[in-house]
Every structure is written in C-alpha cells, then in structure tokens.
C-alpha cells in the first residue's frame, strides 16, 4: 500500500508528502534513534514521538517510507525544513503510537 492511501485509510494528516506513491511494507515503532537505525527496515512506516532534526536524518538514512508523528507531536521549524529538503514523507496524528500501530495492522 502507498503512503498516500494509507494516510487516507486510517486518517493520518499529511504534514509533508513529497513522495506519496512510495510503498509501505511494514511498521517500526521507536523513539531511540540508534535503535530505529538498527532495526527499522527499508520502506517501513516509522512511528515516533521524537520531533527534532535528527529524526529527519534517521528517516533519510534508514530509508523508511514515511515518518508518522504520534500524540499530536509536530516537527520543529528546522526539522520541517530539513524534511522538505530531503523529500521525507511526514504524517501526523493525535493518536498514541499503539493506536496508530493497531490501525496500520488492520490495513497493511
């Protein structure tokens, strides 16, 4: 399923969607960035509550298909600019990491 249709299906709000046709092949949840880099797979959707600029670097280097910010978190200005520059898909939701993961589990 693509990032765009996944966002529509479970009601995630696109903050940045430069590459909405990218496929999502699974999900990784985590806030410790090195842990994410060690475990997240290429093309995973990554759910996190971290919102600083390092999140953008980790998303780019790990090659995840999108970052989903949980709990109503949004990117700070530096991070949003970096994400736009690096063409990272960023979706936001007021739901918790668990609730988003459950929703994703039903549609993926």
């Amino acid at each position: 399923m693509t990032v765009k249709s996944l966002a529509e299906k479970i009601g995630l709000k696109p903050l940045l969607l430069p590459d909405g046709d990218r496929e999502v092949n699974g999900v990784y949840c985590g806030d410790l960035l090195s842990w994410v880099m060690g475990r997240a797979q290429c093309d995973n959707a990554w759910i996190t509550i971290m919102s600083n600029v390092n999140v953008v670097a980790v998303a780019s280097l790990s090659d995840v298909s999108c970052v989903i910010l949980a709990e109503g978190v949004s990117l700070d200005a530096d991070a949003e600019k970096a994400a736009a520059d690096k063409q990272i898909n960023v979706l936001v939701s007021d739901k918790s990491t668990y609730e988003i993961a459950v929703d994703l589990g039903k549609v993926l």
Binding site: L32, L33, G38, M50, V55
Partner: peptide
C-alpha cells in the same frame, strides 16, 4: 533527550 545515547552506536556500526 534528543533520542541518542541508547548505547547502540558502536553495535550498529558493527552490525
């Protein structure tokens, strides 16, 4: 607080 310092840096480099 920035999300690092989990003690996974060197292990990831090896991985």
């Amino acid at each position: 607080s920035l999300g690092f310092g989990a003690g996974m840096g060197l292990p990831n480099m090896k991985r």
